[in-house]
Amino acid sequence: MMANYKPNEMMTVAAARALRNEDVCFVGIGQPSAAANLARLSHAPNVTLIYESGTLGTKPTVLPLSIGDGELCETALTTVSVPEMFRYWLQGGRISVGFLGGAQIDKYANLNTTVVGDYNKPKVRLPGGGGAPEIATSCGEIFIIMAQGKRSFVEKIDFFTSIGHGSGGDSRQKLGIKTKGPTRLITDLAIYQPDPETKEMIVTSIHPGVTREQIQENTGWTVRYAAQVAETPVPTAQELDILRELQARTARAHAAA
């Protein structure tokens, strides 16, 4: 049967499903923003979305291009300054889920968004960490959404911008970090969750039609699987409709500016 959705849509839908109605979610721009708003517009209407520009409880009708579009402020419960956002709300421990993406990730879900190559002589200078270093350690848990590929899913990342599970095991606790870190990695092929002991991200659910060979071909480390691997439920017609309408509204709004 021909799938009537794209791998990217499966990824966004699977990520959206991970958010709960009672979550307070710190949202990154791009894929995390699409997933978080899909959650809000489908199964989690009361989820609280927070963007680092200071908007608390925002309900945008179109996806923002930047983290501080006027749309976010106009539809927010309130907007606080950026120092207050990072001090009272993020550092203060009031955010249950941080939603991140990255350029490079390793098997412990450490993320690099800083450089490819040597820091002082970079092959590619990436944008940098932004809020991620503290989001990764201050939010109750972290969801990561990233499309898979050999260049992004690597054995060794070039720079630790934000920590996942460090070198595994109790790495986080040894650094004095009290939060859970990455509990889900949602890709265009599968869903990974940390092994309870080693904290290596292992596949717990494979998207429909995806093979283990395909997953391995797009990963720079030897992929491990949970004892019981589920098949991710296909996106429902309703999920796809909401996502596509959201993206169509967004495209129209950004073109019109």
């Binding site: 993020l90 809020g131 503290e134």
Partner: peptide, 30 residues
């Protein structure tokens, strides 16, 4: 820096302090 560091550094500057203190950069190479 990270955003948290920059925001804290501005706030410390406004407050006339020489430094900003916060819970940050744990596990990061920065």
């Amino acid at each position: 820096h990270s955003h948290a560091a920059m925001a804290n550094a501005y706030e410390a500057g406004a407050a006339g302090l020489p430094l900003a203190v916060f819970r940050g950069y744990l596990g990061s190479d920065l």
